[in-house]
């Protein structure tokens, strides 16, 4: 078990390094850079000579490989560089923005899981076939709704029509409701589909009929036998859905005007702020790696059949 853990952590580190390197190369390959965008502005009236000096002070004229090594060293020691546009350390920017995004993404994911589980289990308990069909059609509807459109519609209905949630400076908790809903609905769709499918599969297994023959009701069998077996494939999907969550957070934060990594990313892209983008990419990769590591470690806990394979034959 411990060896398995070590090798997984090693793989995770490798993935992070690869993400860092690829992001670095791609950002350098882009024409122009943040310094030119900021200082070549004619309103500033700087001479080419002065711009050269500024570039030298930011270290932009050192050879690429050296920049890479310095940057990598910085990341390893927690120094993520300076944002050219804002003129503050990237670490400070992240520290200011991560909590709000973490709250949004975390709650969004939680809501998506609850929504998916509710739809999947209700549809398999539904007493009428029309209700079952209606519930099972929801995922297709959810996935075809664009995030930005959903956000705008929700604001229209709940803020402007029903006036339930103020648009400007809402209380923190209340302000999260609409963005979380916007984020959760599309993310829940694939989760629901996988869950419905695997519940159906598990329900045909003989052990379910045997549990029914012991006197278990439909609901008892669903909660005591089907649920845990059906969750296994859904967990794999949950790890992959994190990407959707990050992409969704960028759009959602923009639509709702919330501070967060999403908005930071959007601004950094506009100004080609390489240091910020580099940090965001590595942060996203780290989140991915962590979630998938957690999924991997969760598997043997949920499915005892995998324990033996993970560890030695003890």
């Amino acid at each position: 078990m411990r060896r398995h853990l070590f090798s997984r952590v090693g793989q995770a580190a490798l993935v992070l390094w690869a993400a860092f390197t690829v992001a670095f190369i791609l950002l350098q390959a882009l024409p122009g850079d943040a310094l030119l965008i900021k200082y070549q502005n004619p309103d500033m009236g700087l001479s080419p000579r002065e711009i050269e000096d500024i570039r030298a002070s930011y270290g932009a004229d050192t050879p690429l490989f050296l920049q890479y090594v310095q940057s990598l060293g910085g990341f390893l020691t927690g120094n993520l560089g300076y944002s050219v546009q804002a003129g503050v350390p990237v670490v400070d920017q992240l520290a200011a923005n991560v909590p709000s995004t973490l709250a949004l993404a975390g709650l969004g994911f939680l809501a998506a899981v609850i929504l998916a589980a509710a739809i999947a289990f209700l549809s398999s308990l539904a007493p009428f076939s029309w209700l079952r069909d209606a519930l099972q059609a929801l995922p297709s509807l959810f996935i075809s709704v664009p995030v930005f459109w959903l956000g705008i519609v929700l604001i229209q209905v709940f803020s402007f029509q029903l006036k339930l949630i103020p648009v400007i400076n809402p209380p923190e908790a209340l302000g999260l409701v609409l963005p979380v809903a916007t984020l959760a609905i599309p993310v829940s769709a694939p989760l629901t589909q996988v869950l419905i499918r695997s519940i159906d599969d598990v329900r045909t297994q003989p052990f379910v009929a045997v549990a029914r023959a012991r006197g278990g009701s439909n609901a008892w069998v669903l909660s005591h036998h089907v649920a845990r077996n059906a969750v296994l494939p859904a967990i794999t999907i949950a790890g992959v859905l994190l990407g959707e969550l990050i992409g969704g957070a960028v759009v959602t934060e923009t639509v709702f005007g919330r501070n967060g990594i999403g908005q930071l990313t959007q601004e950094a892209v506009n100004s080609q702020d390489a240091a910020v983008l580099q940090a965001v990419v590595v942060l996203a990769a780290a989140a991915f790696v962590l979630v998938n590591l957690a999924v991997d470690l969760l598997y043997p806990v949920l499915d005892p059949r995998l324990k033996r394979k993970a560890g030695a034959l003890t």
Partner: peptide, 19 residues
């Protein structure tokens, strides 16, 4: 079911919940 009438099923491997 299970109290007055009980069942011994066909295939023991798939008749037990694996988890």
């Amino acid at each position: 079911r299970g109290a007055k009438i009980s069942l011994i099923p066909q295939d023991p491997t798939s008749s037990l919940n694996p988890v």
